[in-house]
Design a protein around this nucleic acid. Structure first.
Lengths: 218, 218
DNA sequence: ACGCCGATAGTCAAACTTGTCTAATACCCT
DNA sequence: AGGGTATTAGACAAGTTTGACTATCGGCGT
């Protein structure tokens, strides 16, 4: 419950504020919270007694906005939730890994190309993060934790980019996909060769905050 | 949709088979596919014409089971889906990062302890993965891709564990959370000191068997 | 021979997410 | 002043995921 935490820290807030803060953190990318979910979450939390409605003002004929603040019960819940996340160790779901599981379904040259491209994209992302980490804007207008988070992403990114290259090399070298014991087995026939259009690293829209280096990619 | 791929490779299958295969891959952890979703997915895919119902047998008085196989349309869809995932680069949502964002809400000593513990847990996981990678069972009864996936996890894990230690050191050293420019600002008051119950590193995650993960809500 | 346990196969309602829509106001540029 | 765009707040329906639940069959220990 990110949202609980945000309310705690921005008290009292209305949904729109929460939404903006989340987006400014880029949290829609790394937490599973899209703007659309916020209001529902707020209402549900309020109804569970973890938040309390504090006021409902209306400006002109615009939608009325309701401000919330956290209740002791909510604080409590936040605390345990936070601790669970800090102490617990859960493996995040990664769509790429899922796709990688189907490695043999892709023609070798394409797999190699994809991995190489991925490696590059990741490295570019790492670079751009490193840059914005050093930018003074981040450095002295955001809590240090933000920088540290960047460091984590960078570390992960580097590890992953290296892995991409390593694996690409192996695939290129023709390492067989199956151990001999299963050699005959197929069903793992590759998908049609390739869609002739050569792919370029999909231009991922990025850049929340400034530092708009169009060096794309996360 | 992983499931399409699985059906392609195990054709013809019924839901339960898919479920078992997924669980045997541990895919409920790293893909977002819980057993409960499978049947819904199958029906939806069938209804969209990407799968075709092939038979419905019934053994005794047990629930009837329906077997599916993939259609050309499904193959097509799978192909593009697969390529999107291989080429696209999307940042996976990570609950820990979300929690880390609330760093200042935790008393320093606890944050340090939690990070250290996390580092250890991750290292232990890495070790156990390394072990099962070397085990002959994996080596010659599973596709090589599996080993490579382990390598990825190991690389990531090592990067992350190091990061944990680094950050723990800094927090311990008392590095301030906010830049001076924001020094006065609070609202980031830490949560109650600590629930005196000492936490222990969650039981070391074992690579090929179950690992508990707790649900987070928003 | 009998009861218990785990595997088999799948259903279902509830919870959660998400993208899209509305509709008024503020801002900007010429 | 006028017209276009962006911002402000939030509602909503549709789609997905999930955990909990059924009910049967096959073995295994005793």
């Amino acid at each position: 419950m990110m949202i609980l935490g945000l309310v705690k820290w921005m008290q009292p807030v209305h949904g729109y504020d929460v939404r903006r803060e989340l987006l400014s953190w880029g949290a829609d990318k790394w937490a599973n919270v899209q703007p659309g979910s916020i209001y529902h979450a707020l209402r549900k939390l309020a109804q569970e007694g973890q938040l309390r409605e504090v006021a409902t003002e209306q400006v002109g004929a615009r939608p009325a906005r309701t401000t919330y603040e956290i209740t002791p019960k909510g604080l409590d819940e936040f605390e345990t939730l936070l601790r669970d996340l800090w102490w617990g160790n859960q493996q995040a779901a990664d769509p790429f890994v899922a796709a990688f599981a189907f490695l043999p379904a892709l023609p070798r040259p394409e797999a190699v190309a994809a991995l190489r491209s991925r490696g590059q994209v990741i490295r570019a992302g790492v670079e751009s993060m490193r840059a914005s980490m050093e930018s003074s804007w981040i450095r002295d207008s955001k809590p240090v934790g933000v920088t540290w988070m960047y460091e984590l992403w960078i570390a992960r990114g580097e590890a992953e980019a290296d892995w991409c290259d390593r694996v690409a090399d192996r695939i290129e070298a023709g390492v067989p996909y199956l151990p001999e014991s299963l050699a005959g087995r197929d069903g793992w026939t590759a998908v049609e060769p390739a869609p002739e259009v050569e792919r370029e690293p999909t231009p991922t829209p990025n850049a929340d905050t400034e530092t708009e280096a169009e060096t794309d990619a996360y």
